[in-house]
Write a protein that binds this DNA or RNA. Structure first.
Length: 734
DNA sequence: AGCACGCCGACT
DNA sequence: GTCGGCGTGCTC
């Protein structure tokens, strides 16, 4: 540690100076002096003055920067909190370097629990003494009997158990019948029991479970891709890996896309382990958040199920990471620190030398390539349980069976819906488009409603009487007359949204109970949960929904799934469009058929020959995946040779200037510049053909090549410094 | 990230 | 003449 000598109150005192990572975007740890007699090693969470405020930071490794002694301030408090361990600190450094984010911002993600750095307060409790009350009433007798077990009770708990009011206990306490004791705060969740209710596994599953158990028992770093169709028992299989880690007394992290973190999942865990896992996600109440954080650092919580941010919890002794639905784009964070939690989970596992399991029914291309190349082990589960067959998937060629004029549902789909209704079973219509119509125009003058802020089309929301921009959130009431030519009642909706499909379903089946589900539904998540429960209980006949019906929730009575427009999303220029469409439609159609009844999926398309449609209809995605892998590696790895390519983060205004300068600095040195977002980088990395210098990340869906060209043309107006990351070698973590 | 400082429009 | 918009800069 650096020594700093300076005059204090007339004497020369050497002061220990430590580097402290502050939860703020500084490029380096700041230096703080330790007060006389105070020790704080790397990982210790401390409180330090920063400008006018006091903030929590982490004592970092290495020498503290030499800093102007006049500026040097003192650590104000060393929290009574377990230090952030070495692998976690290396993880923070790694993520910072890889994402080009200041380490402080990454550290901040690990410290997102404002008041958790002080120990949880002990709980006040009462224990019976030898003293007995002078007068014994019936109520007092009940209390004495109840507390006679010699254990400590909380006042309210005891009162409740004995069926008396707390004042009875106050009276006894006053007479010395009870003494006050302090109890450690209760755990947020009871310990899971690895042997509570092991699933009965079939041959293929048992084999996979054994393999995973062996991996966990052996410990050490390794990635396993657990690959099996919806309903093949992936969850049951990785639960066995979790059981093994819990038996070994180590902590487990289960990452889920936020939307999949449902009561259903937690209940399944409970059924297997006799207790729920601790939860970690953005909607957790602050008080609970702190408790979970604290107990995770102390190692008192053994299993956490969480959204991507849970990856930054400072576990005491992490022994296993599961990434469920590893292909899910929700693992990408595109805010401040840009990262893909699935990739960072692999890195965290590598640094902690523990196994990680990536599970999916529709693995991402990059994970499949990793598995094929032997970098990941690959466990392929056989099909569904016998009593939960996959739906029979059929393509509906819209050129041959077109919908009636003004409609979007083909006669084939309508007939299947009628039959499903007759059998008193449920239908699901899937269309990934909110609102009534994606485009509104005036039939008189051709005026199209455009967003004044971002120039995308305004989407009509008829239920709300609004035109909305799905890009920036702008909205305005739907006018009666055309704002351009003034013609009344000539505004025409073009194309379908789920509201319009609901209208069409209503028209054909006026007696059916129709429920529309989308993320912008009035009433928020609570209302959504209620609706989902109602559907599960059979209180709807036809469910019409967007993407959100694809995930997490099972609909046991659903025997028909109709995909209204399977082609939607295939033509948006995203190199992942086909892969995403395949994954989404597999998931959606997988919602049906869990009831054990015969079930059907009808996929409406104008392109029945498209590889995505063929893969869906045949149930054999291999050829599709092979083709996609080739396509994508061609599209994303242009033949630049072994280039130094350019990686930058974010694309907001201040950064864009910095990027421009970074690009100009890098361009002369590079034989070519390849522009990829961090989320696209992994495929390039695993192909191992390139060394990266900088990573340019554009906004979602943006033309990256165009973006970089535009920035180069614009030239540098940059100020400040450019952070250049040299040679991130993929082999260093995979 | 916060928070202060510093220059240009609508108002007590 | 001020109050206040957020653009820019700084924090050991």
């Amino acid at each position: 540690m650096a020594k700093d000598s300076r005059q204090i109150e007339g004497g020369l005192f050497p002061r220990k100076v430590v580097p402290v990572l502050i939860p703020m975007p500084a490029e380096r740890a700041y230096s703080y002096a330790l007060p006389e007699g105070v020790e704080a090693g790397p990982g210790q969470i401390v409180q330090v003055p920063l400008g006018p405020r006091l903030v929590a930071g982490i004592v970092w490794d290495g020498e503290a920067d030499q800093v102007n002694p006049d500026k040097l301030r003192e650590v104000t408090q060393v929290f009574d909190c377990p230090p952030v361990n070495e692998p976690m600190r290396r993880f923070i450094d790694w993520v910072s370097a890889y994402t080009l984010s200041p380490p402080g911002l990454v550290a901040r993600m690990a410290l997102r629990a404002p008041a958790a750095f002080d120990p949880e307060p002990m709980i006040d409790a009462l224990r019976l003494t030898e003293t007995r009350p002078e007068r014994l009433t019936a109520a007092r007798e009940r209390v004495l009997e109840q507390a006679g077990d010699g254990l400590a009770w909380s006042k309210s708990g005891l009162a409740h158990a004995a069926g008396v009011t707390p004042s009875v206990i106050d009276g006894l306490f006053a007479q010395g019948v009870f003494e006050p004791v302090k109890l450690p705060p209760p755990p947020v969740v009871p310990d899971p029991d690895p042997d509570y209710q092991p699933a009965v596994l079939e041959d293929g599953q048992a084999e996979a479970a054994d393999a995973l158990r062996a991996t966990v028992a052996k410990s050490g770093f390794g990635v396993t891709l657990l690959d099996g169709v919806t309903g093949s028992g992936k969850t049951e299989v990785y639960f066995e890996a979790i059981a093994e880690a819990v038996r070994a007394g180590r902590q487990v992290l289960i990452l889920l896309p936020e939307i999949s973190l449902t009561a259903q999942f937690l209940d399944r865990f409970h059924d297997r382990f006799g207790a729920r896992p601790a939860e970690w996600h953005s909607e957790l109440a602050p008080r609970m958040r702190e408790k979970v954080w604290r107990q995770v650092t102390e190692g008192r919580v053994s299993v956490v199920a969480g959204a991507r941010s849970a990856l930054f919890l400072p576990f005491h002794d992490l022994g296993l990471i599961i990434v469920d639905e590893e292909h899910d784009p929700a693992y990408k964070q595109e805010d401040r620190v840009f990262y893909n939690a699935r990739d960072m989970a692999v890195v965290r596992a590598r640094l902690a030398q523990i196994p990680v399991v990536l599970a999916s029914a529709t693995p991402s291309i990059e994970s499949r390539v990793n598995a094929q190349q032997g970098r990941y082990s690959h466990l392929l589960l056989p099909g569904r349980y016998a009593d939960a067959g996959l739906p029979d998937l059929k393509l509906v060629d819209l050129r041959r069976y077109p919908p009636a004029r003004g409609g979007f549902l083909s006669p084939l789909l309508l007939r299947a819906m009628a039959e499903t209704l007759e059998r008193k079973e449920q239908s699901l219509l899937f269309l990934n488009r909110r609102g009534y119509a994606p485009l509104t125009l005036c039939r008189v003058c051709g005026h199209r409603f455009e967003c004044p802020d971002c120039s995308s089309w305004l989407v009509e929301h008829r239920f709300r009487g609004q035109l909305q921009c799905h890009h920036c959130g702008h909205n305005e009431p739907t006018p009666q007359a055309c704002p351009s030519c003034g013609a009344l009642d000539h505004l025409t909706p073009c194309g379908p949204g789920i509201e319009r499909i609901a209208e069409e379903a209503d028209k054909h089946f006026p007696d059916a109970r129709v429920i529309v589900l989308s993320s912008d539904m009035a009433g928020g998540t609570r209302r959504l949960r209620i609706e989902l429960e109602a559907i599960a209980k059979g209180e709807a006949d036809i469910v019409i929904g967007t993407q959100l019906v694809a995930k997490g929730h099972n609909f046991p009575l659903m025997t028909l799934v109709g995909v209204v427009d399977a082609d939607l999303g295939l033509s948006n220029g995203d190199p992942r469009a086909a892969e995403r469409t395949y994954q989404l439609l597999s998931q959606v159609t997988g919602r049906a058929g869990r009831s054990g009844r015969k079930s059907l999926g009808l996929i409406q398309t104008y392109q029945p020959q498209h590889p995505v449609m063929q893969a869906l209809a045949s149930g054999e995605p291999e050829a599709f995946y092979e083709r996609e892998t080739d396509e994508r590696s061609r599209a994303m790895l242009p033949p630049f040779g072994r280039l130094a390519s350019v990686i930058v983060s974010a694309a907001t205004r201040p950064e864009a200037e910095t990027h421009a300068r970074a690009l100009r600095a890098a361009a002369p040195a590079a034989p070519g510049i390849m522009v990829l977002g961090p989320a696209e980088a992994p495929l390039a990395l695993i192909r191992g053909r390139y060394r990266f210098r900088l990573l340019v990340h554009g906004e979602r869906g943006r033309d990256m090549q165009g973006f970089i060209r535009a920035m180069l043309a614009q030239g540098p107006k940059a100020r400040g410094s450019v952070q250049v990351q040299v040679d991130i070698d993929p082999q260093s973590f995979l």
